[in-house]
Design a protein around this nucleic acid. Structure first.
Lengths: 252, 252
DNA sequence: TCAAAAGTGTTCTTATTACACCCATGG
DNA sequence: CCATGGGTGTAATAAGAACACTTTTGA
């Protein structure tokens, strides 16, 4: 992403009445989710810049003057992880007056879903250091990052039941148990195994690869992959609904 | 809302490296929904300012340097309609590079729900003129306002099934048919009368006022009001779900 | 007495829930 | 042969969908 210094300033300088308003900055912050067999994780950085240098925080960056919001979010992600073509969703914008010590900075929060195996740390200008943190440990971040994290996690919980995004977090081949654990990690509740399988298979977007797990000290599980086309069609045409009973608990 | 000229600029001027980024403006735009017996409406303004002076557009305004985003959205609403304490939801932020001819302007879109009867036009600095438009007529607005409208309307469709917001659009006393028409207008489909009533009454947040409509040329309908407390509890405790069959159409 | 909208139940179908045992593998 | 997780079905209950006629009022 190269930064051309466009003539935006000269354009708005024609309209002096508005100049007072062109004094804000805005940023994107990115909650990068990954799933590691059993745990839902978030990629945090150790900040390489003031303010809050050296603290663990959400990866984010200023949005350049000639850069769209989504582009900026993708850039942050790519610089940090080297991963492109990622599922990205804008969640909410945070703009409290006092949220940034340097002035008025509004931030647009995104979440993204990546396969943890695709990730290879690209230490960049954004960060001195980056690391995956379990979602339970994500607390005490600077700015309003805790609040941003909660908003994004809640959005993910909502979306996982309605959108074809589960596979973004899994390797291309996975077992039904892995998929169930992913849902459990996101929804933060245990699900009933038989009901989960019945429902997910009835939806008809999983392809049985006729392959088995290898090297596990128990009966090997079958491997599946997502049929993205079907998954997408299901979502677009009829509004996909995923809901199964938690284990041993009356719903409602 | 008075505008103090805080010392934000001097604060960030200490950090010259960032100064390049403090050149953006941001605004809020507000999709104000109202419901008028049969039709869902949106309050548009005839712009009193450049750019696009005299065109119908979404009401919005720059966010002041010392004003939170929600506060700005409420201010726009209050200046335009005189209505306060309104249901307001942030939907999405739009920030394409070229969306505003005066420079980089990011806008945070909100929707709000008001009782159309509470509204008395306060022509303000924001608008020369304001008027309710049926949602079907809302097209051809300047900037990216069409896109913003669609995003907000879609969000409303989603929320009406999950959140206790229906009553925000109705007068304090209403009939079941009015309520059904509201749902139909938002969801853009006809619903089955008996199923609608069965479901909505079983949820137990409507209070039968033992009053009847007057002066109608047909059997008068009973009047109900919302029990806001119950409605809210229902939502918070168990995640309220509203879904009824459209008339004469197989679902799925 | 007519037009207009209010009000009201039942049956059928589909989806959700609860629940427990045998199987295949590696160590 | 044991520990570990994989894999499977059925019955009971609840929710959703389809559907048509009688009632009350004002004009």
């Amino acid at each position: 992403m190269d930064i051309k210094s466009k003539n935006l300033e000269t354009k708005h300088n024609k309209n002096n009445a508005f100049d007072n308003f062109f004094k804000s900055a805005f940023t994107v912050d990115n909650i990068i989710f990954g799933f590691d067999e059993a745990d839902l994780k978030v990629l945090l950085i150790k900040r390489g810049e003031v303010p809050y240098e050296n603290q663990w925080a959400l990866p984010g960056n200023f949005v350049y003057q000639d850069e769209d919001l989504n582009t900026a979010a993708k850039r942050v992600l790519a610089e940090l992880t080297g991963v492109k073509n990622v599922h990205l969703e804008q969640v909410k914008t945070f703009g409290s007056v006092g949220r940034h010590p340097f002035g008025r900075v509004i931030t647009v929060a995104y979440y993204s879903l990546i396969k943890i195996s695709d990730y290879h740390l690209h230490v960049s200008s954004i960060a001195q250091e980056a690391a995956w943190h379990s979602i339970s440990e994500v607390k005490g971040m600077p700015f309003d990052h805790d609040e941003i994290f909660v908003a994004c996690f809640n959005r993910l919980k909502l979306n996982i039941k309605r959108q074809p995004i589960g596979f973004e977090l899994l390797p291309p081949k996975f077992t039904l148990t892995q998929l169930q654990h992913l849902y459990e990690a996101i929804l933060e509740e245990k699900l009933d195994k038989r009901n989960f399988r019945k429902k997910i298979l009835s939806m008809d977007f999983l392809i049985d690869l006729d392959e088995l797990q290898e090297g596990v000290a128990h009966r090997p599980a079958k491997l599946f992959k997502f049929d993205k086309e079907r998954y997408r069609r299901l979502y677009e045409e009829e509004g996909f609904h995923f809901d199964v009973a938690p284990t041993k608990h009356k719903k409602k």
